[in-house]
């Protein structure tokens, strides 16, 4: 399958220099979302699927600490994360996450694009749907006015602001741009092998199409014998 993936790389134009929407979305996740949101099932090394280099992955992992059993006194130890570790949660545990977020855990991002009603399109819209609450509108404590939510409010403060981060490739970091890039990144975390899946699928179908033609010719030839014997018998 390696040569197929290589072909995909060439077709898709994944090169080290141009940055893709997914890669920019990863930057948004890294600098903004990952303060509160987890990626429980994605390992640092998985980011190579986005086109990140080994060095970039090592550098990102090295910024994080992961639990590493107990020391001689029985106290919990940590070590620097390695590429094979899961990215996981910014909080030490569920209770900590709840305490920091008015009692609810910020949703995990691993499969969010699949499990969120409305999918990525809704997430992208929601990120741009913050506004001033209309006069007289009372919001529950710890919530923010957001027109994309069914009840008009959300527990997350507006995370994206124009120019909040700067993209290496010079793309202007507008709220809309960042929301869309993050959407592309979430799409990738939810379906990390989608591009390979489609490519392998095309190869499989081409193979089966060729096979079908050959088998059709063979079947016709085999069954024509029967027609010939019938014909010779009837005459």
């Amino acid at each position: 399958m390696r040569w197929m993936l290589l072909a995909l790389g060439l077709l898709g134009g994944v090169s080290a220099h141009a940055s893709t929407s997914e890669q920019r979305g990863f930057k948004v996740f890294r600098q903004v979302c990952s303060t509160c949101h987890s990626l429980d099932h994605v390992a640092y090394a998985d980011l190579s699927g986005l086109g990140l280099t080994q060095d970039q992955i090592k550098e990102y992992a090295a910024q994080h600490q992961v639990p590493d059993g107990l020391d001689e006194d029985g106290d919990p130890k940590t070590r620097v994360a390695r590429p094979t570790d899961l990215i996981g949660s910014p909080y030490a545990g569920e209770a900590m996450a709840r305490m920091a977020n008015h009692g609810s855990v910020p949703p995990d991002f691993s499969r969010r694009a699949m499990t969120q009603k409305g999918g990525v399109a809704w997430i992208v819209r929601m990120l741009q749907s913050y506004a001033e609450a209309p006069a007289g509108r009372k919001l529950p404590p710890g919530s923010y006015y957001n027109t994309a939510m069914p009840h008009g409010h959300i527990g997350m403060p507006q995370p994206l602001h124009d120019g909040q981060i700067s993209y290496e490739d010079g793309t202007p970091a507008t709220t809309k741009q960042m929301a869309e890039d993050l959407g592309a990144f979430l799409e990738w975390t939810a379906r990390p092998h989608l591009a390979a899946r489609h490519l392998v699928g095309v190869f499989v179908l081409l193979y089966l199409a060729g096979m079908y033609v050959l088998l059709l010719l063979m079947k016709r030839r085999v069954w024509s014998r029967l027609r010939q014997t019938d014909a010779s018998r009837n005459f």
Binding site: R197, H198, V200, G201, V202, V204, L205, L208, Y212
Partner: peptide, 14 residues
């Protein structure tokens, strides 16, 4: 079987 596998492939790949 060739046709069957084609339907199967469309399902799992696309």
């Amino acid at each position: 079987i060739c046709l069957f596998l084609a339907v199967y492939a469309v399902l799992i790949f696309f």
